[in-house]
Design a protein around this nucleic acid. Structure first.
Lengths: 336, 336
DNA sequence: TTATTCTATGGTAACGATAACATGGGCCAT
DNA sequence: ATGGCCCATGTTATCGTTACCATAGAATAA
């Protein structure tokens, strides 16, 4: 039953249709000069033969892979998934595909990944964050394609960026907490030094507290980033134990914040009456849980869409303009 | 500053090192016959020249892309993300990469995607579910690479599968509900006809209810799959309105179940005392929320790992053995 | 010592598409 | 009618790597 002959090529389709291989090639390319009837005949014959267009050959000859390489810390993060979704959808309109890699929040792993991805000859590369190994950075600097750093505004961008200041976003939340009347405020995040964005949020927290003349030392490290709901809950328990008089907590993500919220419920601590909670990332959980969670919307999907648009502009020869996203503080019931 | 010459090739590295291009090629291939010193010299020269290995040429010549194509309904689903994670990690050990596409729970879209992915000449293709368009199925049947259907046990597998019976898994939950004493049980799912796995769970629910001689007509359709927490909450409100005497509900996913749970809290309905809730998928939310959620663990990551192992076996010329996963009912506080 | 095997390398052609250029016929303007 | 232009198609060479085969010398066996 199984056909063991080797798969047909354009030459086979050409032979069957009585045209040259070049004409078959044109039939498969959207905007090329070819008569309508001929194209249809060719495509019909191709379908009948079971011919499948071979991108690998096309890529080599045309020196265009149709790939955009993307590295994200983890696929298990709704925010990054949204960014990838925005990228993917926007690039699909131009028949470009995403080549995805996971760094596991590790610049060493990122370096390996970048090297591996570049071998596929992507037409642009998108990385998450502005921190890289020395060699990783060098690879990105010397490659001759657009490089876009996202989810951050790097001090020294390699090429382009689409991002926001994590520190400033957290500052907005601290300002809000202080305005509403909270003073003894803590921060729950992951262990220091791995997740760059998490670290920046912690730094932003400390800086904002100092501006208000408040104690910025209530910092709970809850484990390897990204921290889970469970770890957020554990951190909350620890926080109450170490600093029982704390009035509010800023969490590095909504997941940790939700964990903290459930721990409060278990402990019988009323939120927000005796304790306020803020998260980060505007996950769906935050608008459904009771009470709803104050958070920061970083417009994850928009980061992806704008990044894709930037890439397409550059590939079209237009000037690429970097994008500064303005995260939005969303005040909900957990901090009123 | 920018070097505008065109990028170096193996020939350039060969010239600099004083060897043939063939030897350079060997230096870049792990297990090839080449002396250690020579390989090191070549790799050093390559790094210095800024040479980047070109997979596109390699793929064409060797007729091996190093890709495994994967289609999933959505990237925004922790279960499928876990499966992809398992696939990705396991394949990475053999230097294979995943080429990911999103069907948006739509077989029409899946067909387009399959066609697009096959052009990249993957060495295997993994699809989610066993339902495809006619042409999509034909494409998969005629392609000369391993095809693996996942998250389901198709009535007529195209080639291989790694999955489980969604209907049976839900039956286990209904059995549990009945055993514990609930009788008037409802089902919350998405609109009929789009999400295959969701539909199968609904069918499994109805069948199980009938076996117990119970009324299987309390079915709430909550919107386009995948249904969100918010939609789960809305569906719960509707359920209580239409069938006020309902005692328990089986939800198509933990997200919907969590939404239902919060709605109960808002309505002052005690869970599980007056109302039991079950979900599907063993999402993290279910073990953190209060009360914790009864659910079904479908071993999403394991599906990915086993699928990858199956692919590697087949590519190694071994016999590929299909995998039946046994989902596990996890009874938690929401249904005791 | 001689035959045999193994190791390290080189030469050549090919993977399958298409960029670049060439060409012939139809159509329009003058 | 004739030059010029556009459209549809063909010819040739090439993208960068590696499969395949050949070969020289070293190592081992007989």
């Amino acid at each position: 039953m199984s056909n063991t002959r080797k798969p047909p090529t354009m030459a086979d389709v050409a032979r069957v249709t009585g045209v040259s291989p070049m004409t078959v090639s044109r039939a498969f390319k959207a905007d090329s000069l070819i008569s309508k009837e001929r194209r249809e005949a060719i495509l019909r014959a191709a379908e009948e033969l079971g011919y499948v267009f071979d991108s690998t050959a096309s890529n080599l000859r045309s020196q265009k892979s149709g790939f955009v390489a993307v590295t994200i810390p983890s696929i298990n993060n709704a925010n990054f998934a949204d960014t990838v979704g925005g990228l993917s959808d926007t690039l699909a309109a131009r028949d470009m595909q995403i080549l995805l890699g996971y760094t596991n929040y590790n610049t060493q792993e990122e370096e390996r990944l970048i090297e591996q991805l570049l071998r596929r000859k992507p037409q642009a590369i998108v990385v998450t964050g502005g921190k890289h190994t020395e060699r990783g950075r060098r690879l990105l600097e010397t490659v001759h394609i657009p490089v876009i750093e996202t989810w951050d505004i790097p001090a020294e961008p390699i090429d382009h960026y689409v991002g926001f200041s994590n520190a400033n976003a957290v500052r907005d939340m601290v300002d809000h907490f202080v305005r509403v009347g909270y003073r003894r405020i803590a921060f729950i995040g992951g262990d220091v030094g791995r997740d760059t964005r998490g670290s920046e949020r912690r730094i932003g927290f400390a800086a904002a507290m100092q501006v208000h003349g408040l104690d910025a030392s209530r910092l709970i490290a809850a484990g390897l980033p990204p921290i889970s709901m469970r770890e957020g809950a554990n951190a909350m328990a620890k926080l109450i134990e170490i600093y029982p008089d704390t009035e509010a907590v800023v969490c590095v993500s909504d997941l940790a914040a939700y964990g903290a919220l459930t721990e409060c419920r278990r402990l019988g601590v009323p939120v927000p009456e005796r304790f306020a909670i803020g998260g980060f990332g505007n996950y769906e959980i935050g608008e459904v849980c009771v009470p709803t969670l104050t958070t920061i919307n970083a417009f994850a999907r928009e980061i992806g869409v704008r990044t894709a648009e930037l890439i397409l502009d550059i590939l079209d020869g237009k000037q690429g303009v970097d994008v500064r996203i303005s995260p939005e503080l969303i005040v909900r019931d957990s901090s009123r």
